[in-house]
């Protein structure tokens, strides 16, 4: 059941795979990636990537970043983060799931596909590293519970509501407007930025991409989705991934010192006991 997010065949991602602006995805090229942060009170984010690629590669480019578990390695998608959302914080947070062991089937990122032309989701039978999405298809990640057969717990939006509509790159790429567009927006004026971002024709791609040098949190204040409508999406533009440093080795050295100290104390105690006994 959890095997769907567990990948093992590590195929080095093709060199040409990379992030694309959302307008470059068409009905026959590129793969649309949708990640639903709704479980964490966040938005649904939409991105585009070139093919050939893998599900893992899609989630680790253009500012996206995943984290595996200590038990299963990076192929098991335990956390997902995007640098334009909450300054790249990965969800679930360490408080919510330590990601040391395989998460339970009641709270994990499940992986869903919709091939080109299909308007229903299928639960992924392969892990993110093994699965190679077809051009024009949609990949969705939803956090929550699924049953063992993958018939429940799927995305609560249809593939067609996120699929690329344009046939040539660069055109208007926004999803079809939702059938019941702005009910929450009408009742909650605060949700205006969010719904605006999902409306066709508006320049949406900048809404979540942080400017290269701006403080990270500034651009992401788009009111998160508790107020967003059923099928509203924010487009996540490709950005540079944040660099991480290797940290300091001082804590490790301190610990080695402590362990040596305790070991020396143990040796002294043992010697004294032997002498006394």
């Amino acid at each position: 059941m959890l095997a769907a997010t567990f990948a093992a065949v590590a195929v080095a991602a093709p060199a040409q795979a990379g992030p694309l602006p959302i307008s470059q995805c068409t009905t026959t090229s590129g793969v649309i990636l949708v990640v639903d942060f709704g479980h964490f009170g966040g938005p649904r984010l939409r991105a585009c990537g070139s093919t050939p690629t893998t599900g893992y590669q899609l989630l680790n480019q253009g500012g996206w970043k995943t984290e595996g578990t200590g038990h299963d390695g990076p192929a098991f998608i335990c956390r997902i983060g995007y640098s334009g959302h909450q300054s790249g914080k990965k969800f679930p947070t360490p408080q919510q799931d330590p990601c040391a062991r395989t998460p339970p089937a009641t709270a994990y990122w499940s992986y869903w596909h919709a091939d080109p032309g299909r308007n229903s989701w299928s639960y992924s039978q392969l892990g993110a590293m093994s699965y190679k999405p077809k051009p024009g298809s949609v990949d969705a990640w939803v956090f929550g519970a699924t049953d063992t057969g993958g018939t429940s717990g799927g995305p609560r939006f249809s593939p067609d509501s996120v699929r690329a509509r344009n046939t040539t790159p660069g055109g208007g790429s926004s999803p079809r407007p939702s059938p019941k567009p702005s009910k929450p927006a009408a009742t909650k004026p605060g949700a205006a930025p969010t719904t605006a971002a999902a409306r066709p024709g508006t320049s949406t791609s900048a809404s979540l991409a942080p400017p290269p040098s701006a403080p990270p949190s500034s651009s992401v204040s788009a009111e998160p989705t508790p107020t967003a409508s059923e099928s509203s999406f924010l487009d996540a533009a490709p950005v540079e991934a944040a660099r991480t440093d290797t940290g300091s080795s001082a804590p490790a050295l301190v610990t080695v010192g402590l362990v040596l100290l305790i070991g020396a104390a143990g040796a002294v105690v043992a010697k004294r006991r032997r002498a006394g006994g």
């Binding site: 984290e67 595996g68 200590g70 990076p74 947070t93 360490p94 408080q95 330590p98 990601c99 040391a100 991480t244 440093d245 290797t246 940290g247 300091s248 080795s249 804590p251 490790a252 301190v254 610990t255 402590l258």
Partner: peptide, 23 residues
């Protein structure tokens, strides 16, 4: 303390930190 320090990530490779209170 930072609960993330209990389960440090090895991707990318980095030194683990020593959370003071648990230690």
């Amino acid at each position: 303390y930072d609960p993330a320090a209990l389960n440090p990530s090895l991707h990318p490779l980095q030194w683990p930190t020593l959370p003071l209170l648990p230690a």
